[in-house]
């Protein structure tokens, strides 16, 4: 029973870490493919949630079963889980603040634009 739980936890953790690596690379390619500031918010979100929050939870699931690390593996697990929570709360707030500042300072144009009710000069 306990061995089954250990196996499930390790496989799930490694799967989340592998998925995070692939998603981070996809986000990095997306930064080069998108042409505009507001469109680049989308690969940043991929990098943040799939590439940082889920791998840290995967590290938590992996390290609580690795008995090679000694007693302090609980420290790695707790610290990475707290970091996942911090990134999950703070990264969307930061990117929203940057987008608001760029839109107010009129440094980037809204490029595929149907309507911009805040400032109609930036449209198109």
């Amino acid at each position: 029973m306990l061995d089954t739980l250990v196996l499930i936890s390790r496989v799930l953790g490694l799967a989340l870490i592998v998925l995070g690596g692939i998603a981070s690379l996809i986000g990095a390619i997306g930064f080069h493919r998108f042409k505009n500031f507001y469109l680049r918010l989308h690969p940043l979100t991929i990098t943040t949630i799939w590439g940082c929050v889920y791998p840290l939870i995967g590290v938590t699931l992996l390290t609580i079963t690795l008995s090679e690390l000694g007693v302090y593996r609980w420290f790695i697990a707790g610290a990475s889980f707290i970091t996942a929570l911090i990134v999950l709360f703070l990264a969307p707030a930061g990117s929203h603040a940057i987008a608001r500042g760029v839109h107010k300072s009129k440094t980037a144009r809204v490029q595929p634009c149907l309507a911009d009710l805040l400032d109609s000069e930036l449209c198109g």
């Binding site: 981070s24 680049r40 590439g51 940082c52 840290l56 990117s95």
Partner: peptide, 19 residues
């Protein structure tokens, strides 16, 4: 091209560095 792109890229560098 703009300042906002650079700040977003610095964010992404840091989140990759954390993992």
């Amino acid at each position: 091209p703009t300042l906002g792109d650079q700040v977003l890229a610095i964010d992404a560098i840091t989140y990759a560095t954390i993992v």
